[in-house]
Amino acid sequence: MKIKEGFIMRTLCGQNVVQAVGPKNVNFSKLVSLNESAAYLFAKVNGQGEFTPETLRDLLLEEYEVDPETALADAGKLCEQWAEAGILE
């Protein structure tokens, strides 16, 4: 899977949000808000092509003190949420 083209992250009211920026239209009606670790992961994988929950797990392990199982479970959940929000392909 990978992040669809045309999504950017910005800060609104102190929250990190992901937003669709098309060639013609910028959509402010659907914003996906990210917590700190999700924002870290999004910044790492956006525009970097394919990734798997394992990729996200490794990125989490680089940055946070967490055991690999928990990191993988969280990464899996996050991928599901991103898929549901329509930012993955």
Binding site: L12, C13, K24, N25, V26, N27, F28, S29
Partner: peptide, 19 residues
């Protein structure tokens, strides 16, 4: 806070969808 980036996008020539 919401409209600052909206305004910026419009000023850069984009069309923008807002709730």
């Amino acid at each position: 806070e919401f409209f600052v980036p909206v305004r910026q996008m419009l000023e850069e020539g984009h069309s923008v969808t807002i709730p």
